[in-house]
């Protein structure tokens, strides 16, 4: 019993780490490849979560819903909506300098949050959407379902990794890194920097939305309070920098390690005296904030630093 408890703790750990790995890979496409500072990750995550929730859940009394579509339709809709929103935002903001892009994306995430809280006909406001199904719910029950879900999440992680890896190796990825490192030089050889950046931002936004959809299915319920937006954005950044921005394997490793540290601090703060117990989550935030400062000052390039793909294929042709 003890051992199986530990096993299912590990399964739930891997599920959340997998969801964060998708976000982290998406951020790696935007920041690691493209140098786009997105501080509004939570906004796209929320778009994904709500789209999937509304499309797949059973009928609700107060808001639109009851479409009861399959999980895959939900995820497709989430990706399309986030892609369109991301495209609109990218068209406007993507050529802003990094600091300004950070301000703009925070603002966008804030507006998305306001819409979610205020437009009750769509999202049921602060009460949230419930009755969100999990994939293959009809076939697997109980603890098997947990294992099936973690496999499902990591399938998506692998898919994201594969796409991101191909993008990194492709001429597209090469052009993107050139734009990131020297915009003027890239422009001088005829690269349309604005269009490349827009594509990067949209692709990242789509995968962030997929991660949101996954967590909506995992929680089976989603409301504005279900997640702390700043925490998601912040953890994703810590994960990517600690893992190594620009490196896809680093992004996954960062997600696993930082989520492990984050989960362990929960165990550590459990030892605090009881009057501090209610404040343990703030202690964890404080520790993760200090961890970021440590990484930034000492291990800036991350655990697995960026490496350009091998050039041998290029030489042969």
């Amino acid at each position: 019993m003890e051992l199986s408890g530990l096993f299912f703790y590990f399964v739930s750990f891997l599920t959340m780490a997998g969801i964060y790995a998708v976000i982290c890979l998406a951020l790696n496409i935007q920041w690691g490849f493209g140098g786009l500072f997105n501080a509004g990750i939570a906004g796209f995550y929320a778009i994904g979560a709500y789209s999937a929730a509304i499309i797949t859940s059973t009928a609700a009394s107060n808001n639109v819903g009851g479409f009861q579509q399959s999980i895959f339709v939900g995820m497709a809709v989430a990706a399309v909506i986030a892609g369109l929103v991301g495209w609109g935002i990218a068209r406007l903001c993507v050529s802003l300098k990094s600091d300004y892009l950070a301000m703009a994306t925070i603002g966008i995430a804030e507006i998305i949050r306001l819409i979610i809280v205020n437009e009750e006909w769509l999202t049921n406001g602060s009460l949230g959407v419930s009755n969100i199904p999990r994939p293959f719910e009809g076939v697997f029950k109980g603890q098997t379902a947990e294992i099936v879900f973690v496999l499902f999440v990591w399938m998506i992680v692998l898919l994201t990794y594969f796409i991101s890896h191909r993008l990194h190796k492709s001429p597209w990825g090469r052009a993107l890194r050139a734009i990131r490192d020297n915009e003027d030089a890239a422009e001088s050889i005829g690269k349309d920097t604005h269009s490349f950046r827009t594509q990067t931002f949209v692709i990242g936004a789509i995968f962030m939305a997929l991660a949101g959809a996954l967590s909506a299915h995992y929680f089976k319920y989603f409301s504005p309070d279900a997640t702390e937006p700043i925490l998601i954005t912040f953890l994703a950044w810590v994960m990517l920098i600690a893992g190594g921005s620009g490196n896809n394997k680093g992004a996954i490793a960062g997600a696993l390690i930082v989520w492990a540290i984050w989960s362990m601090t929960e165990i550590l703060t459990g030892f605090l005296p009881s009057e501090w117990a209610t404040r343990s989550s703030y202690m964890r935030m404080l520790l993760i904030g200090l961890f970021l400062q440590f990484v930034l000052q000492r291990y800036r390039s991350g655990l697995l630093p960026e490496r350009a793909p091998k050039l041998d294929k290029l030489r042969r042709s």
Binding site: S98, M285, L286, G289, R300
Partner: peptide, 20 residues
């Protein structure tokens, strides 16, 4: 940009210290 990222972290550190 590194300082900007650091200031995000500092925002979180300050807030959680205040909450504590």
């Amino acid at each position: 940009i590194y300082t900007v990222i650091a200031s995000f972290g500092v925002a979180l550190i300050l807030r959680s210290a205040i909450q504590l």
